[in-house]
Amino acid sequence: MMGRVSECTPLITWTGPPPTTENLTICDWSGTLSKAQQEASHRVVDTVKINDNLLVWAVCGAGKTEVLFEGIHEALSQNKRVCIAGPRTDVILELSPRLQKVFPQTSITTQYGGSEDRHEYGQLVLATTHQLFRYEKAFDFIIIDEVDAFPYSYDPTLKYAVEKARKPDSAIVYLTATPDSLTQKNCSSKKQNHIRIPARYHRHPIPMPRLAWCGNWNKAFEKKRIPTMLKKWTVQRLQQNKQALIFFPSVNSMEKALPFFQKLNQAIESVHAEDPDRKEKVKKMREGETLILLTTTILERGVTIPNIDVAVLGAEESIFTESALVQIAGRAGRSAEYPKGDVFYFHYGRTKEMINAILHIHNMNREAGKRGLIDG
């Protein structure tokens, strides 16, 4: 939410002199980029220089934030104002300290519904997409993170807000791991400027999902049991002391199933968007205190747990689109120390979305191999 806005709330625009960056050390980052990241970084810089548009199509775990640093540095060094907009508050809150560290002498504001500095105007603004309604012709360079995600992908007024917040002569970069089918077609036909990063920074392929028919899982829960295939998979994780996420298509089905999972291990927990203990439960999972967490699609993005296996139950349900299934698979194998992971789509009938998700990952791995971006 963007917070309360009344009819007389002023839009934020800038007509004064540009900020001065003279004698400032703008970028303080000593990391190194992979070959694919470096290619994408150069394209971002060029986009800023000529005020163009670019889609960066980067696989889950590619290190897309680091790809932005040179482009942001280029814009700031030209006294330009920059905005990074994302769909969710937790993503913006995660980005804020990282950007503060990389650009320590740049005025940075972090804006989301209820944030203390949402009425301030820094040279680098991190904001949820809803906050862009506050701006008019304010930014020289806008980055839209997770352009395929809700709510940006579903709400045309947010696209209007982005266009309104840009200066007439400005640059825009879109980031996604899972572009929709129209965007993919536009990339293939070269209607959309884009660059692909088909490999993760650690040079290992993305784990390939496997399909497993598990029968009528709803009926199994009605009979107070876990579907046999999923139960076997879960018990293996418990025996191996291996962390796992199990994705459910709805809160109702997940809460119905939880008691049966807790019979296997009392420490198994569940989480969903309205869960009052959501942050604490995710924190416990990140810190390794929870071994297995049942979840809805709220954890399909933005969660990195180093050594984890992933399962989807009811993968045939409509909520599990190609995009969602690719993102879920992308939770596994993100760490250089643990680049592999087990990914299963448990289903009661194959769908086109499942097949497309597997082909999507296969094609990215194949492209990465052809470009020499992965080992083995």
Rank of each mutant, 00 (worst) to 15 (best):
L76G: 07
L76S: 04
L76P: 10
L76M: 12
N79I: 02
K80T: 02
K80A: 01
V82A: 05
C83T: 00
C83E: 01
I84C: 09
G86L: 05
G86Q: 03
G86E: 04
R88P: 04
R88A: 08
T89W: 00
D90H: 12
D90Q: 08
D90C: 09
V91T: 12
V91M: 13
V91R: 08
I92N: 08
I92P: 02
I92S: 09
L93V: 09
E94R: 10
E94N: 13
E94M: 08
E94F: 04
L95C: 07
L95R: 12
S96H: 11
S96R: 13
P97E: 04
P97W: 02
R98C: 01
R98A: 01
R98N: 02
Q100E: 09
Q100N: 13
K101D: 03
K101Y: 02
V102A: 07
V102S: 02
F103N: 02
F103K: 03
P104N: 10
P104H: 09
Q105H: 15
T106A: 02
T106C: 03
T106R: 00
S107H: 12
S107W: 04
I108F: 07
T109Q: 09
T109E: 03
T109R: 15
T109A: 01
T109K: 14
T110C: 14
T110L: 01
T110I: 01
Q111M: 15
Y112D: 01
Y112S: 06
Y112A: 05
G113W: 00
G113N: 10
G113S: 09
G114P: 03
G114R: 11
G114H: 09
G114M: 05
S115I: 00
S115R: 01
E116T: 11
E116Q: 10
E116D: 13
E116V: 05
D117K: 06
D117Q: 12
D117I: 00
R118F: 09
R118L: 12
R118Q: 14
H119W: 12
H119Q: 13
E120R: 15
E120K: 15
Y121N: 14
Y121R: 13
G122Q: 00
G122H: 05
G122W: 00
Q123P: 01
L124E: 02
L124M: 13
V125L: 11
V125M: 06
V125D: 05
V125K: 08
L126K: 14
L126V: 08
L126Q: 13
L126S: 11
